[in-house]
Design a protein around this nucleic acid. Sequence first.
DNA 1: TGTACATCAGTGAACGCGCGTTCACTGATGTAC
DNA 2: TGTACATCAGTGAACGCGCGTTCACTGATGTAC
Lengths: 220, 220
Amino acid sequence: MPAECQDVTVTYHHGDLPAALLEAVEAAVAEHGVSAVSLRDVARRAGVSHSAPAHHFGSKAGLLTAFATAGYWLLAETARAEVAALGAAGTAADAAAEVAAMGRGYFRFAVGHPAQFEVMFRLDALNPADRDLAAARDAVYSLLTAAVGRCHAAGRLHGRSPEVVTAAAWSLAHGLSALWISGHLAQRTGEQDPQKLAKTVLDMFVQAVLPPQPVPGEDR
Amino acid sequence: MPAECQDVTVTYHHGDLPAALLEAVEAAVAEHGVSAVSLRDVARRAGVSHSAPAHHFGSKAGLLTAFATAGYWLLAETARAEVAALGAAGTAADAAAEVAAMGRGYFRFAVGHPAQFEVMFRLDALNPADRDLAAARDAVYSLLTAAVGRCHAAGRLHGRSPEVVTAAAWSLAHGLSALWISGHLAQRTGEQDPQKLAKTVLDMFVQAVLPPQPVPGEDR
DNA sequence: TGTACATCAGTGAACGCGCGTTCACTGATGTAC
DNA sequence: TGTACATCAGTGAACGCGCGTTCACTGATGTAC
C-alpha cells in the first residue's frame, strides 16, 4: 500500500526491517508528536504486522531507545563534520572555533531531526539503563570536553574552570536547539534562517568567553 | 481517602477544585512523566469523579494548558523576586546583574517545578491558540527584553545586537534548566548544588558578554 | 423568616477505541551432509 | 545436486486495559421576593 514500495518485490523477509522501523518512528513522531507514537502506528507505516516491532526491539521503550541511540551517533557525526569543515582551508584549527563549530553541529542535527532530538531527551520514554544509549551519549559528550580541553591548553579559558565552560557551551547549544524547534525563538527573533541565528549566537559566546590571549588595550 | 483530607469536611462542592486539579497534575507528572498523565488519574488524585476535570477545563489539553499558564506566571514571579533580591542591599542595580538574576530565577523555577516546566514546553500537549497562555508567555519574555534593553542603555552591549544577546541569555538559562532536570548536567559535572552551578555559569556569561564600559588595559 | 427558582459544581454510567503484550504459528533462508 | 533440519523473521488472533468524551442526572448554593 505505501506508494514508495510499489515497485519493490514484497517478500516475507523485509531485508532491513529494524532500520525501516526507525525511519517510521521519525515520521510518526514528526506527524503526531512523541506522546502519540505507538508501536502499531510505526508498524503500519513500515507496512508490517503490528507485532513485528516488538519482535525486533522487545517493547515500545526498546524501540524508542534504539531511535535515540541512533540519534546520538548521528549527532556526533554532524558535529565532527562541522569541525572538519573548519580545517578544509588549511591547518590544525583554532580550538575555540572548534567549540563554536560543534555547537553549530549540535544545532544543525537538532533542527534537521527534531523528532529524534526530542526523543533523545524524553527520558521517561527510554530504557534508562541501556548500554548502547549510554555509549552513544558518552561519545558526544567527550567530543565537547576534548575541544574545551584544547582551549584550556591554548590558554583561552582565562582562569575559568573547563567544567563550567563545558556546561555553559552545552547548555547554550541545547537551549538554542530546543527553543528553535519549539518555534519560540523563530517567533520572538523574527529570524528565518536558523543556521544564521545559531552561528551569530555561538560566535558571540565563543568570542566573549574564549578570546585569544589578551592583548593589552584590547577592546573586544 | 487521601490522608491529607481526613480532617476536612468533605462536601459536594469542593471549594476550589480547579486549583486542586492543577496540584494533582503536578503530582501526576512528577510521578509518572508527562506522557502517562491522564484526566482520570488526575481526578483520582484530587478525590473527585473522573469527569470533573473535563467539566472545568474542557479537555485534557485544556487542563495541561491551564497548568502551563500557571507555570509561566510563577516563572515570572520567581524571576522578579530574584531581581528584587539584588536591590535589597541598596539602589537601582546593575542592569547586567539583573540579567544574571533572571537567569537564576528561570533556573530556580525549573528545578523547583520540573513537571510544570516540562509541560510548558510540551507544545504538542497544549492548546496552541490559548490566549491566557500567550499572555503569560509574553509577560515572561518581556521581563528579559526589558533587562537587556537596560544593558543596552548602559552601554554594555559593546555593539552586539540586543536580539542576539536576548536569544543567547534565554537559550543558556533554558538549556541549563533542561539539562539539569534531565540529570545530564548533574551526572557530568558532579556538581550537587544546582543553584551554585547555575550561578557560576550565568555569572560567567554575563561577565564575558555584558562587561562594564571597557577600561583601557583591562584584562578581564 | 420562608419559599421558589436559577445556577452551577460535580456525578456516574456508558460509549467506542487504540493500545502493548503474548503466543502459537508459518514462511523463507542457509547450512550440513 | 538434493535432502533434512535448524534458525530466525514476521504473522495474526486474542487478551485485558485504561483512556477521553458525552450526557442526563443530582446535590448544593445563593438570590429574589
